[in-house]
Nucleic acid binder design. Sequence first.
DNA 1: GTTGAAAAGTGCTGCGA
DNA 2: TCGCAGCACTTTTCAAC
Lengths: 157, 157
Amino acid sequence: MEKKSQYLELDNLDTQILSILMNDASVPYTEIAKKLVVSGGTIHVRMKKMEELGIIRGSNLIINPQSVGFDICAFLGIYLEKGSQYKTAVEQLKQVKEVVELHYCTGQYSMFAKIICRDTNHLRHVLNEDIQAIKGIARTETIISLEESIKRQISLI
Amino acid sequence: MEKKSQYLELDNLDTQILSILMNDASVPYTEIAKKLVVSGGTIHVRMKKMEELGIIRGSNLIINPQSVGFDICAFLGIYLEKGSQYKTAVEQLKQVKEVVELHYCTGQYSMFAKIICRDTNHLRHVLNEDIQAIKGIARTETIISLEESIKRQISLI
DNA sequence: GTTGAAAAGTGCTGCGA
DNA sequence: TCGCAGCACTTTTCAAC
């Protein structure tokens, strides 16, 4: 089943490569190579290894949601009627495009979601029509983000 | 060049280009062009326009935090002593590398953070030593994510 | 594992329609 | 405004260390 311990494979060079590309995936390998004083080929080999190990999931173009008309970011604490309804609830929440993140979690909420909507009308529609209609969801609590002050990835160094 | 209304500029083609690259930033322009039945040059022009308009923020390499030893994802509801302490609290939270997201928000919490840690010891250290020590933070509530079931960007189409 | 350079593929630029 | 074609750059491969 399991192959190898997953993260003991990473040395200092791997970590530094990841750190650079996590901030900007468009930095050329040759430039990374120069900065880390190795050859471009080495960067390529390391990246291929990390892709095969599943350490690298892919790359995203990051857009500013507000500039494409999505102005509302909200967090949603979700109470389930029964914990066993988790799996079916997840499947149905996947169908709701506005849900960008979903966690199964400890604490008062059974699940915790992050939602991005165009405006307050859109949010109300998603809450009332899409999410409250899902079987197993008892009730929800909404936290609306007025400002995203920090948005970044973990620092490996 | 003056600034214009930011998102009315986007037509169907722009939206489709973004949708492809938001899922995988490494898709070549030529392939996008083939799929959308335009020339590669057109993709290039559109991308340049959207970069200049600030719609595109950049690109990220996405890694699996667990595979580099970060096993714990937690959300933190933060209560401030006074709302006016928001700005200084943000500045101090920026220094805490484990905080990957921070929102100023409505509801019971003044602020809401997402934290990624190596293990429970690491989390306890961040909570007790780093975050509770910040001036203005009265108390916090921790929600630990046991599973991230959904993780994606907004769908433009 | 790493290197350096050649081969293949991609992005960029200018001209023409 | 769009498409095509040539040039520059990047990624990929591979023999040699």
